[in-house]
Amino acid sequence: MTESNEMILNPDHVTIAVAKSGPAIEFFALLGFRKEHVATIDGGLPARYMGMPDMKAQHITLVLEGADPHFEIQLLEFDPPTGTDPGAHPTNLRRLGFNHLAFRVDDIEAATAHLVANGVTMLSDEMDYISRKLRLFEGPEGITFELVQRGGSDASG
C-alpha cells in the first residue's frame, strides 16, 4: 500500500437514526436532499448485517441533488422507536461518538438566511478558521450540523 489515500475515493453516505422520519426529510430538503428510496427492514439480511437480527425499521435514502460525487443521507426510523437518553442529546458536542455533519456551501450568509427563515436553530456565530467560514446549526432531533465555506478571511491555514 502506498502512502497516498488511494483506497478511499470520497464520502458516500451518512446514516442517522431518527424517531420520526418526516421532520428529518423536510429538514434535509431545505439543504437540497430529495427522497430517493424507502425500504422496510423486517429482519433478514439487512438486519443481520447491522448486528440486529430482529430489527424492524424504515430505511429512507435522501440524495443530495447535483452532488458530484454522489452523496446520501440514510435515515433509519426504528419500529418500535429506540429509547432516548436525555444525557446523550446529539447537540452535546462533548459526548463520544457522532459529533456533527458538515456541508460545504458557496455562500454561508445566504445559506444561513435560508435556514433561519425556515425555522432552523443557529448554534454559533460565524467563525473564520483555517481559511474557512464555519457556522453550527441544530438539525432534526438535535443533530448538530455545520456549514463550511472555503476561502474564509483567516489567513492561518
Rank of each mutant, 00 (worst) to 15 (best):
M1N: 10
T2D: 13
T2M: 14
E3H: 07
E6N: 10
E6Q: 12
I8C: 04
P11C: 03
D12K: 07
H13K: 03
V14R: 06
T15N: 09
A17G: 02
A17M: 05
A17P: 01
V18K: 10
V18Q: 09
V18F: 11
S21E: 03
A24S: 01
I25A: 00
E26D: 12
F28R: 10
A29W: 14
L30H: 07
G32T: 12
F33H: 09
K35Y: 14
E36I: 01
H37M: 15
A39Y: 14
A39K: 14
A39I: 00
D42C: 00
G44R: 02
G44I: 00
L45K: 06
A47H: 04
A47W: 00
Y49T: 13
Y49M: 11
M50H: 12
M50E: 03
G51H: 02
M52C: 05
P53E: 01
P53V: 01
D54F: 00
D54I: 00
D54V: 00
M55R: 00
Q58T: 01
I60T: 07
T61L: 15
L62W: 15
L64W: 03
L64F: 07
G66E: 08
D68F: 13
P69C: 05
F71E: 02
E72H: 07
I73W: 07
Q74D: 02
L75K: 05
L75Y: 08
L76M: 11
E77W: 09
F78L: 08
P80C: 03
P80Q: 02
P80D: 02
T82W: 14
T82Y: 13
G83D: 01
T84C: 03
T84S: 10
D85M: 05
A88P: 12
H89M: 09
N92C: 10
R94K: 05
R95N: 12
R95E: 02
L96F: 07
G97A: 05
N99K: 10
H100R: 12
L101I: 15
F103W: 04
V105Q: 09
T112D: 14
T112Q: 12
A117E: 06
N118T: 02
N118L: 06
N118D: 03
V120L: 05
T121I: 07
M122K: 09
M122H: 06
L123C: 07
L123K: 03
S124H: 09
S124Q: 01
E126Y: 13
I130Q: 15
S131V: 11
R132H: 10
K133G: 04
K133F: 10
K133T: 15
L134V: 05
L134P: 14
R135F: 12
L136C: 08
F137Y: 09
F137W: 07
E138M: 08
P140R: 15
P140I: 15
I143N: 11
T144V: 10
F145G: 01
F145W: 03
E146F: 08
V148F: 11
Q149I: 12
Q149V: 12
S153K: 10
A155C: 11
S156G: 11
G157M: 06
G157P: 13
